[in-house]
Write a protein that binds this DNA or RNA. Structure first.
Lengths: 125, 125
DNA sequence: TTAACTGTATTATGTTATATAATACAGTTA
DNA sequence: TAACTGTATTATATAACATAATACAGTTAA
């Protein structure tokens, strides 16, 4: 459920951020549900508590979770504004990737098929 | 034609790599055409020659250019095997981005439209 | 042959981001 | 009160990135 690769060039705190973000977006962690504590996760993944804290602080800033002193961290209903920002971000990324594919002469039909297939098969529900 | 942003979190040598890679893929630098010299680029962009060298070495390793001692660096016809690797890479990236969009509940029709539009408008030719 | 280009390599140095370690303080709960 | 929570600070270590300085080697044209 919570996995990090300490040998990856992606920082641990970013991996942690992405893990939890996905769990919330996919509905595996529901609104107001409590997350494991910072020390618990740090111990589980054998990383420093400050590294987990860094991920949590970022998640809080981006509106995914909220923290209560002495109690813990909890999932939040995603802020609409921030969600729209994310959608714009993923659209931009998609455009770039399509242009990259075009640069390599991948035909548009291949990309369309890939899109349909990936959307059908993949992900949640 | 050659631009780098020294304040970006993307390393300069990677930006340089990407710049030249695109120029070759887009046909702006043709087969066996000579690239600017390492010292010339370093001076132009006010970065260290070793940083340019690092980009060039990577480009050579990936089959985009070849170097001749004392003469310079030249564009190469892209290696078929490596090109196929790149296509696989961009397909994978596309899948991931599509799943990311699905996670944010972007409807498939929106993605299809975006794909068609980006492919038509964007990039070369 | 020499001057002025090319690529290549090494060694030392500096900066920044990332991560850890150790410790402390504060709020919550049973 | 004990044992949890979050939060913060200071010091330290490491790796990636980039620079600086310098040197060596191959090419080319005057």
């Amino acid at each position: 459920m919570f996995q990090v690769d300490i040998r990856s060039r992606i920082p641990i705190y970013e991996q942690m951020y992405e893990n939890i973000r996905r769990l919330i977006l996919e509905g595996h962690i529901k609104e107001d549900e409590q997350l494991p504590s910072i020390r618990e996760l740090a111990s589980l993944l054998t990383v420093n508590p400050n590294t987990i804290l860094k991920a949590f602080k970022q998640l809080e800033q981006d509106g995914y979770i909220y923290a209560l002193q002495g109690r813990g961290n909890f999932a939040k209903k995603l802020d609409v504004v921030y969600r729209n920002q994310e959608i714009e971000g993923v659209k931009k990324k998609l455009k770039e990737t399509i242009l990259e594919a075009k640069l390599l002469n991948v035909p548009i039909e291949t990309l369309m098929d890939l899109l349909k297939d990936a959307y059908k098969r993949g992900g949640n529900q």
